[in-house]
Design a protein around this nucleic acid. Structure first.
Length: 106
DNA sequence: AAACTGACTAATA
DNA sequence: CTATTAGCCAGTT
Protein backbone atom coordinates (compact mmCIF):
# COMPACT_ATOMS: atom_id res chain seq x y z
CA UNK A 1 0.00 0.00 0.00
CA UNK A 2 1.58 3.26 -1.09
CA UNK A 3 1.11 6.60 0.62
CA UNK A 4 -0.91 8.07 -2.14
CA UNK A 5 -3.24 5.11 -2.31
CA UNK A 6 -4.14 5.44 1.35
CA UNK A 7 -4.58 9.19 0.94
CA UNK A 8 -7.01 8.61 -1.88
CA UNK A 9 -8.93 6.06 0.18
CA UNK A 10 -9.26 8.46 3.09
CA UNK A 11 -10.53 11.11 0.73
CA UNK A 12 -13.10 8.78 -0.79
CA UNK A 13 -14.31 7.66 2.62
CA UNK A 14 -14.73 11.24 3.73
CA UNK A 15 -16.65 12.20 0.62
CA UNK A 16 -18.94 9.22 1.17
CA UNK A 17 -19.94 10.74 4.49
CA UNK A 18 -21.35 13.91 2.96
CA UNK A 19 -25.12 13.70 3.50
CA UNK A 20 -27.61 13.97 0.66
CA UNK A 21 -28.56 17.55 -0.11
CA UNK A 22 -25.36 19.01 1.31
CA UNK A 23 -21.99 19.92 -0.17
CA UNK A 24 -18.37 20.23 0.95
CA UNK A 25 -15.40 22.08 -0.53
CA UNK A 26 -12.14 20.53 -1.67
CA UNK A 27 -10.19 22.28 1.03
CA UNK A 28 -12.67 21.20 3.65
CA UNK A 29 -12.27 17.54 2.70
CA UNK A 30 -8.50 17.94 2.73
CA UNK A 31 -8.59 19.29 6.26
CA UNK A 32 -10.98 16.62 7.47
CA UNK A 33 -8.66 13.84 6.35
CA UNK A 34 -5.73 15.53 8.07
CA UNK A 35 -4.04 16.96 4.99
CA UNK A 36 -4.46 20.73 5.19
CA UNK A 37 -3.57 22.67 2.03
CA UNK A 38 -3.92 19.57 -0.07
CA UNK A 39 -7.08 20.71 -1.80
CA UNK A 40 -5.60 19.87 -5.17
CA UNK A 41 -5.09 16.30 -4.11
CA UNK A 42 -8.77 16.03 -3.38
CA UNK A 43 -9.54 17.22 -6.87
CA UNK A 44 -6.97 14.85 -8.27
CA UNK A 45 -8.34 11.93 -6.28
CA UNK A 46 -11.86 12.56 -7.53
CA UNK A 47 -10.61 12.91 -11.07
CA UNK A 48 -9.01 9.49 -10.73
CA UNK A 49 -12.28 7.82 -9.67
CA UNK A 50 -13.48 4.88 -11.77
CA UNK A 51 -16.74 5.32 -13.64
CA UNK A 52 -18.58 2.90 -11.39
CA UNK A 53 -18.21 3.93 -7.80
CA UNK A 54 -20.34 4.68 -4.78
CA UNK A 55 -18.68 8.02 -4.06
CA UNK A 56 -20.99 11.08 -4.20
CA UNK A 57 -18.40 13.18 -5.99
CA UNK A 58 -21.09 15.61 -7.07
CA UNK A 59 -21.26 16.95 -3.52
CA UNK A 60 -17.75 18.40 -3.71
CA UNK A 61 -17.46 21.96 -5.04
CA UNK A 62 -14.80 24.65 -4.94
CA UNK A 63 -14.47 27.35 -2.28
CA UNK A 64 -16.66 29.78 -4.21
CA UNK A 65 -19.57 27.38 -4.21
CA UNK A 66 -19.28 26.69 -7.92
CA UNK A 67 -18.93 23.48 -9.84
CA UNK A 68 -15.27 23.39 -10.77
CA UNK A 69 -14.47 23.54 -14.49
CA UNK A 70 -13.43 20.21 -16.00
CA UNK A 71 -11.69 19.11 -19.14
CA UNK A 72 -15.04 17.63 -20.24
CA UNK A 73 -17.89 20.09 -19.51
CA UNK A 74 -20.59 17.45 -19.81
CA UNK A 75 -19.73 16.25 -16.33
CA UNK A 76 -20.27 19.74 -14.95
CA UNK A 77 -23.84 19.63 -16.19
CA UNK A 78 -24.28 16.17 -14.76
CA UNK A 79 -23.00 17.32 -11.39
CA UNK A 80 -25.40 20.22 -11.32
CA UNK A 81 -28.29 17.98 -12.29
CA UNK A 82 -27.50 15.44 -9.60
CA UNK A 83 -27.31 18.15 -6.95
CA UNK A 84 -30.58 19.70 -8.05
CA UNK A 85 -32.18 16.29 -7.73
CA UNK A 86 -31.00 16.26 -4.12
CA UNK A 87 -32.65 19.60 -3.47
CA UNK A 88 -29.64 21.90 -3.86
CA UNK A 89 -30.60 25.18 -5.52
CA UNK A 90 -28.23 27.02 -7.85
CA UNK A 91 -28.40 30.81 -8.16
CA UNK A 92 -28.41 32.69 -11.46
CA UNK A 93 -24.64 32.80 -11.49
CA UNK A 94 -24.55 29.01 -11.21
CA UNK A 95 -23.45 29.11 -7.63
CA UNK A 96 -24.55 27.37 -4.47
CA UNK A 97 -25.13 29.15 -1.18
CA UNK A 98 -22.47 27.51 0.96
CA UNK A 99 -24.03 29.20 3.93
CA UNK A 100 -27.12 27.08 3.36
CA UNK A 101 -25.79 23.80 2.02
CA UNK A 102 -22.25 23.36 3.31
CA UNK A 103 -21.79 20.18 5.29
CA UNK A 104 -20.74 20.70 8.89
CA UNK A 105 -19.44 17.41 10.18
CA UNK A 106 -20.77 16.78 13.64
C1' DA B 1 15.76 14.35 -14.42
C1' DA B 2 13.10 18.57 -15.44
C1' DA B 3 9.10 20.91 -16.90
C1' DC B 4 4.24 21.20 -17.16
C1' DT B 5 -0.54 20.53 -15.88
C1' DG B 6 -4.51 20.34 -12.99
C1' DA B 7 -12.16 18.70 -10.48
C1' DC B 8 -7.84 23.92 -5.32
C1' DT B 9 -7.27 27.46 -1.28
C1' DA B 10 -6.17 31.36 1.49
C1' DA B 11 -3.94 35.71 2.19
C1' DT B 12 -3.15 40.02 0.57
C1' DA B 13 -3.62 44.32 -2.20
C1' DC C 1 -15.47 42.58 -7.21
C1' DT C 2 -10.43 41.23 -9.65
C1' DA C 3 -5.32 40.09 -9.58
C1' DT C 4 -1.24 38.22 -7.59
C1' DT C 5 1.31 34.99 -4.81
C1' DA C 6 2.54 31.09 -2.60
C1' DG C 7 1.47 26.56 -0.88
C1' DC C 8 0.75 21.58 -2.29
C1' DC C 9 1.83 17.12 -5.08
C1' DA C 10 0.49 13.03 -8.46
C1' DG C 11 0.75 12.03 -13.30
C1' DT C 12 2.30 12.95 -17.89
C1' DT C 13 5.54 14.32 -21.32
Amino acid sequence: MTETESRYKKIYKMVEQIPRGQVATYGQIARLVGLPRHARMVGYALHALPNDNNVPWQRVVNAKGEVSPRATPQYEDLQRHLLECEGVVFSDAGRISLKTYQWKRL
